[in-house]
Design a binder for these strands. Structure first.
Lengths: 200, 200
DNA sequence: AGGCGCATGTAAGCCGTTACATGATTCC
DNA sequence: GGAATCATGTAACGGCTTACATGCGCCT
């Protein structure tokens, strides 16, 4: 009934999205933020616990005390109808353009200040990071496709699959881009192909 | 000679990167943060001015007072040798994995809670946003390619071109992904092709 | 005996956004 | 006369990270 804050923060919606899938303790939410969701949103427990209290006083979630291993009472949180409603309205509300913050690209943007060989070590690290993420996404996609519900648009697995496939496609593009950059840097660092045959 | 902070913040490196390309006033840096750099890093002037002072007390940049239009003295900042050195070391230093924060994907991840038609309006907005960015990147790439220095790895234009091409490739992948998602949502929202002939 | 996983909380401090404040010149 | 651009700064506030704090049960 209270309305401390009319609409949750971004973190609040991330939590509502998690709880819409399954009721959880704060600790569990923190762990789940590392996996699938964590690939596009992250939060530490120190951020999650205060947000849970705000969401509850605003009436979006509620908790029951269950048996648990901590020194304090263990609480399992679940969405209220108002919470599900807020999540749904947010999903369909207008999108405003979000600012991009990409440290890796920021570095490459200043790579002209160093010699091409150093720039290659940077682009190699970038490629490795993208490839590692890509491998994780691909494994998850394959696992999800075998699970029931992954072809039902009303099932969470369907949405998980869509987002993961997006990750696969963009990371693949990023890996391919890294390789072309690498080739161009190498061409700039090395002598021409005719000259390169001289030593092997 | 002072060393208030041994190494600049991420914002500090963004500023050093800008100043390595050309000396600027704080106001000008803020404007430049909206354009090319702003596509992967942003900052407001209220963040830039304090950071400029920190960078200067740390010896990475210095300023000269020039004639300008403001009520206070107008300062043009430039990199010091120490600043260029710090920038170079940062570019080649080890990369730690950066957390991703993607609000749009977070929404799609909860799109299973709404009906497919509503999800389609979301994915349409996402596609439009990606397409708009893609168009900007493509235009800048074409412009840059005609400029001198874009094939010289020691020239800023070269690095600009690389980063923009990366943006083009990933945004293209994102647009393509949006379209496949749309098709699948449409298939789920509409009856099968055989059944769809019954009523219109 | 010590470390790890479960489980919840608080505090300090940085990073970032929004808004307030000032004032000249130029263009409509 | 009013708005936009140049130009620099401060203040308040929220988001996020890092670190501190507690304590049980299980495994080695």
């Amino acid at each position: 009934m209270s309305a401390d804050r009319v609409t949750p923060s971004n973190l609040g919606f991330a939590i509502l999205g998690l709880l819409a899938r399954s009721a959880s303790t704060g600790y569990d939410l923190a762990r789940r933020m590392e996996n699938p969701v964590g690939y596009f949103w992250t939060a530490r427990h120190s951020q999650i616990y205060p947000e849970l209290r705000r969401l509850e006083t605003s009436g979006f979630i509620e908790h029951e005390v269950i048996e648990g291993a901590g020194p304090r009472p263990t609480k399992r949180y679940a969405l209220t109808p108002a919470g599900l409603d807020a999540l749904r309205r947010w999903v369909t509300s207008d999108l405003e353009t979000q600012p991009v913050r990409d440290l890796e690209t920021l570095r490459l943007w200043s790579a002209w200040t160093v010699d091409p060989r150093s720039a290659i070590t940077l682009i190699d690290q970038m490629e490795q990071a993208h490839a590692a993420r890509l491998a994780v996404y691909e494994a998850l996609v394959e696992e999800l496709q075998t699970l029931p519900g992954s072809d039902d648009p009303a099932h969470p697995h369907f949405a998980s699959l869509l987002t993961l496939e997006g990750g696969v496609l963009t990371r693949r593009a990023a890996v391919r881009w890294c390789r072309t950059v690498r080739r161009r840097l190498l061409a700039a660092a090395a002598p021409t192909s005719a000259a390169s045959t001289r030593s092997g």
